[in-house]
Amino acid sequence: MIDPYYLQQLAIGLSLGMTYALMAIGFTLIFGVLNVVNFAHGEVYTIGAFAGLVAITAFAPPFLAVLFLALAAGAAAGFSLERIAFRPFRRFTDEASLKSRAMRESTLLSSLAVSIVVREALEIVFGSEMQPLPFEYMINAPVQAGPVTLATGDLIIFGVAAAMLAGLQYMLKRTRIGLSIRAVSNNPLGARYVGINTDRTIVMTFVVGSTMGAAAGILVGLYYGAIFPAMGFIPGVKAFVAMVMGGLSSIPGAVISALILGVSESMATTFLASGWADMVAYGFLILTLVFFPSGLFGAGRERV
């Protein structure tokens, strides 16, 4: 018989891993279509949480409405982010610019700039400390499942994330926009030849990825009661690690890696002080880069 304590840590790890997975998908989708890392993805997570917080303090809507508003804010953030930080650099479509690393690096830096501006703006408006959150919105009531004690948050996070992953999978395989996103990831030039509007597809990729990132933000915020302007940084790094472990552009790879990461961290707190748990992710990153430079699941998998 396994000690219920480990089952509990496993369940917590899975729900934590799911939030990393939601974040990692945004990274992966955007890397797939543009081949650049979106440094502002952590801020999208923060924006999701703050949108929920503002809604709660302003007119105390039901939980589902809070979630919905956070997702909508994420979608809007993704749309604006693409317009502000990414699209301006796509004007340069001549061969030389497309091949130059400088172009990719400037996009990377412009997303970093947006990330800094958003974080600082939130600090000016809300202050840098944790935001007070009404108790009734917290999702950390204990739930007894056999010998294991979980929080409602674990179940809600797991459920919402699983539903979103299933929805994403359906979208990518069955809908026009999903097929277009995969086509642009697979062969951007081929996508233009078949008449795909690549600009619109890229915007949609940001909207979808950012919606999922914002969902992670509000869910984690309400679970831990910790909403503050810099909250997106650490999850952003973890999701980035999951993306690298998964092979940069594989969604299944990123999701599995995110779950491995979540469970490892939650198990590690058994043996390490919780302050050291973050080390697990960085350890995984180093091991991946040294021993599996093309990701744990090998190169050549389908992008996105």
Partner: peptide, 28 residues
């Protein structure tokens, strides 16, 4: 005109190098 608008007018190309979506199914 943007490439996608030209395609929509009924001018399609089988380009050099094929540019098929190699990671997607034939049907896709």
């Amino acid at each position: 005109l943007p490439a996608h608008r030209i395609v929509a007018l009924g001018l399609c190309q089988a380009p050099e190098g094929r540019q098929i979506f190699s990671n997607m199914s034939v049907r896709e």
